[in-house]
Design a protein around this nucleic acid. Structure first.
Lengths: 220, 220
DNA sequence: CCATGATTCAATCACCTGATTGAAGCGTAT
DNA sequence: ATACGCTTCAATCAGGTGATTGAATCATGG
């Protein structure tokens, strides 16, 4: 009746993917065992190697299933923005939202991917395994570079190096939010309260836009 | 001649702590084995259990050695600020720097703790082990609450919930910086270039202060 | 010099890990 | 019905893990 029970059969591959996504997101790659995954999925241990080949290959399949569409959506939104503001630079707030929203979309319960998917993406950012870091580099390098260039164009008064710093800060906020906001557990009063996806995005965009626009020089 | 070689003796406990700090920071708790630690330290495996009791207890000792002084410094700086601006609220930039700087101080090569210490703190934020999360809660709850309250007082026009959100964002930026700024590896052009500690702090404070001060309402 | 306590050592424990194997089960086309 | 290919299964493998033990070593005070 619970989740660890073989239902019928047939979708073994999908069940493994779902269980692995959940456990990798919650416990991390190193702490998650194939036994744990296959029990959660109600599947034999050997099924993982039959369908994927290895634990690492399972991770790669998981990564490809989530990160690729997410970044494709990022690029599409950027293209739309640049097409809309023909020739000119898109507005900063729209750029930030275009970069952030694709990750948050998966946080919705309604989304077929669901929260585990975005938590998994967030965990990828801090996983020490070198495969993970290689996959992140492959997936994010071009998208990140394109957005960074556009941000630099959108902020001519800030200076490219400063924009690069602030781009880092934006990614920091994004991953922190995807991970589930640890401070809720750490600082009791700090929980901003449950928020739906658009409200969270609104808070983040306001904060980040103001940060991006901050006057550049520090020395008076 | 390298690091994995017994030098003399005597400081076994310290050697274990140093090796564990380095490896935990680089590889995470789960991926780091006691064998790896003791080899790195040039020490027998049993020494860990003799001096600390268990792998988890070693982690606790490590945590106490770094996090406690760091948060003590945070509180001291906050007290100094509130004493300086007698009765009034300290300026926002000073508050941010007081919260951020204690973590960065350890990033300096000169500091006896060194970069591994701050990397370890950053990794604690994303470690799935429940001991880590418990330790984080114990250490950061009161400091975080005090700072959050002061930030709220310093930003009367923003509203407490909005301040809580932005406080989250600040912690996000801090941990991202402590972790070593992953984007440097992910997005080729994104590296802001090597920066010394005060410059990094300046970039972060500028960005965060502007974000904190952003006008609150989203609806026009 | 020796006795005592603190420390270090090699050896070993039970357990869990990812991986592999060969047989069994299954549906399907002949 | 039969034979074939895909899938699942229990059983097993070698290797690594944290932990523990008892003997050896060391330093120190009598």
């Amino acid at each position: 009746m619970g989740s660890p029970a073989k239902v019928l059969n047939g979708d073994t591959k999908e069940r493994i993917l779902a269980a692995a996504e959940k456990l990798f997101a919650e416990e991390g790659f190193a702490r998650t065992s194939l036994r744990g995954i296959t029990v959660e999925a109600g599947v034999n241990v050997a099924a993982v190697h039959y369908h994927f080949g290895s634990k690492e290959a399972l991770l790669e399949a998981l990564f490809a299933r989530r990160a690729a569409p997410m970044n494709a959506e990022r690029l599409a939104k950027l293209n739309d923005l640049e097409a809309a503001s023909s020739g000119d630079v898109p507005p900063l707030e729209a750029l930030i939202e275009a970069f952030i929203a694709p990750s948050f979309r998966m946080l919705e319960e309604l989304d077929p991917a669901g929260p585990p998917a975005s938590q998994l993406i967030a965990r990828f950012f801090s996983e020490p395994e070198e495969i993970v870091q290689r996959l992140m580099r492959e997936q994010f390098s071009d998208v990140g570079a394109r957005y960074l260039a556009t941000f630099t164009r959108a902020l001519p008064d800030v200076g490219p190096r400063e924009v690069a710093w602030r781009f880092e800060f934006m990614v920091a906020v994004l991953t922190h939010l995807l991970a589930g906001m640890h401070l809720i557990d750490v600082v009791p009063g700090a929980t901003p309260g449950p928020a739906d996806q658009p409200e969270t995005i609104r808070h983040a965009v306001q904060f980040l836009a103001a940060g991006f626009r901050a006057p550049s020089k520090g020395a008076a």
